[in-house]
């Protein structure tokens, strides 16, 4: 009986509508704040792009002259956002399995899409850099293997989603797949690059060739990280609102 009552009261949440309500009731103040944020983001990105060409000096230790190493201003933040978005996608997938709230599924999907876009950017910039520094676009370096597997997993994730018609079943099964992938992928993404010798420079470890970053590079690099994170948050917000409106329209049609 209690369960039945709960279902009755929670039925309005069946399409995950109420928990997205904050995206719907946009007040005047939050709109002004959003516009300020977008302007700041646009200015920041422009400054980073110009600075990466004109201000950042060559970084010795990368390639022959270090001229090509300026690409880290784009490559590393893109990879960071890819990892962050995939992580958030998994978090929302697990949250969907626990709460069965479809707005969580939409968030997982938006993050998976954004993660794939940034992962592609990281792969392409990495391949271009690899060509400039070592003469080959692709040679199955452990880092390249792990990023290729990440892309494959999310490609399979999107195929799985497209093969399921029912919204609840799609959300449930794709959440299970994303979680299962999250358990097995650390082998490739984090263990393999550290066990097998890789050409990829390690920025965090400190012992690598790249540990000495000059202050000019560091400033632009950190600014780029912040701007990329802002861009990610903005795109995520747009995606969530878009899928929310689509779900609302389906609801109105009585589907």
């Amino acid at each position: 009986m209690a369960v039945y009552l709960r279902r009755l009261f929670c039925s309005s949440n069946m399409y995950g509508v109420s928990s997205d309500a904050r995206h719907f009731g946009i007040s005047y103040i939050s709109e002004v704040r959003a516009i300020i944020g977008q302007v700041l983001l646009g200015v920041g990105m422009t400054v980073v792009v110009i600075a990466s060409f004109l201000y950042v000096p060559a970084i010795p230790g990368f390639g022959a002259t270090g001229e090509t190493a300026r690409i880290i201003v784009y490559h590393v933040p893109a990879a960071w956002i890819a990892v962050l978005a995939y992580l958030m996608s998994t978090v929302h997938s697990v949250a969907y399995l626990v709460t069965r709230d479809l707005s969580r599924d939409r968030r997982a999907l938006v993050n998976a899409e954004l993660g794939t876009v940034f992962c592609l950017l990281a792969t392409i910039t990495g391949a271009v850099w690899s060509r400039a520094a070592w003469g080959m676009y692709w040679n199955w370096d452990p880092r390249q293997t792990s990023i290729a597997v990440l892309l494959l997993i999310y490609a399979a994730y999107f195929v799985l989603r497209s093969a399921l018609n029912d919204a609840d079943r799609r959300a449930r099964l794709s959440a299970v797949y994303a979680t299962l992938a999250f358990v097995t992928v650390p082998f490739l993404a984090f263990v393999v690059p550290r066990v097998f010798p890789s050409l990829h420079p390690d920025l965090g470890a400190g012992g690598g060739r790249a540990s000495a970053m000059s202050p000019e590079v560091l400033v632009v690099f950190l600014a780029s990280l912040i701007c990329f994170t802002g861009l990610y948050l903005w795109l995520q917000n747009i995606g969530v609102r878009l899928y929310h409106l689509q779900a609302m329209r389906l609801l109105k049609r009585g589907d």
Binding site: V149, L152, I153, V159, L160, L180, L188, V192
Partner: peptide, 15 residues
């Protein structure tokens, strides 16, 4: 669908 879903998950094992 199984082959598509399995390959990325099984790749660590296969390697």
């Amino acid at each position: 669908l199984l082959t598509v879903l399995s390959l990325p998950i099984l790749l660590p094992l296969l390697i």
